[in-house]
């Protein structure tokens, strides 16, 4: 079977971006379906509240569209890292407005116990994430949900490559000590063995 030569169809990410830049909303919708999942994962990991995470996702996507239409995207730059940079900044703003994030979600979950059976595991993870330093959490979330390369994460966070490498490692390692094998949160005072 011939698998080489020929031109790619226009529905790869680059093709979609081109279409969006010329105002194709359908193309943007398709692009959104590809980006929103990872973006939500990232935003949720940062703010640990599903309302806020949804808001961040929607605001980031909207700003991405505006930037694309205004052709403000840096040529050659990654759309994905641009989008996550917006989300990162929105999440940081959110944090500055300072709300105790964990209890809100907990009480909310308690009211909806029947509908959110898997919330326990999520909640455990949630608590553990709250214990990570912000840099470590950001870098790790960008890696796991954004699927960004270390270099892109460094650019997004305005950090050096070495810093990113260390943050991701420390973040993961801390989570590994905070959560046992079954995903149970062991408490803030656990120290690395």
């Amino acid at each position: 079977m011939n698998m080489h030569g020929g031109s790619p169809t226009s529905l790869d990410e680059a093709g979609l971006i081109k279409r969006v830049c010329s105002g194709d909303v359908n193309a943007f919708e398709l692009l959104c379906t590809r980006l929103e999942g990872p973006l939500y994962g990232y935003a949720y990991g940062m703010v640990r509240n599903s309302h806020e995470a949804e808001d961040i996702v929607q605001e980031s996507l909207f700003r991405l569209y505006q930037a694309m239409r205004a052709r403000k995207l840096r040529p050659g730059g990654s759309t994905r890292s641009f989008l996550f940079a917006i989300a990162h900044n929105l999440a940081a703003d959110n944090r500055r407005r300072a709300r105790p994030s964990v209890p809100l979600e907990d009480s909310f979950l308690a009211q909806h116990n029947g509908a959110t059976e898997s919330s326990l595991l999520r909640e455990q993870l949630n608590r553990a994430l709250a214990d990570l330093p912000a840099n470590h959490r950001s870098a790790l979330m960008l890696r796991e949900f954004g699927d960004l390369q270390y270099a892109e994460i460094a650019e997004t966070l305005g950090a050096s490559l070495d810093e990113v490498k260390v943050w991701i490692h420390r973040g993961r390692k801390r989570l590994a000590t905070l959560l046992d094998r079954d995903g149970q949160y062991l408490g803030k005072n656990v120290h690395e063995l």
């Binding site: 909303v25 943007f28 919708e29 959104c32 379906t33 929103e36 999942g37 990872p38 939500y40 994962g41 949720y44 990991g45 949804e54 996702v57 929607q58 996507l61 909207f62 569209y65 898997s118 595991l121 999520r122 993870l125 790790l140 796991e144 949900f145 490692h169 993961r172 390692k173 989570l175 590994a176 959560l179 094998r181 995903g183």
Partner: peptide
């Protein structure tokens, strides 16, 4: 480290969040 990664990746990923964005656009 792999275990932590697995835990993170088993998180639910919602779809369709972009609906209101498209409406707004």
């Amino acid at each position: 480290l792999e275990r932590v990664r697995t835990m993170l990746l088993t998180q639910a990923i919602p779809m369709g969040l972009h609906g209101p964005v498209i409406d707004r656009i």
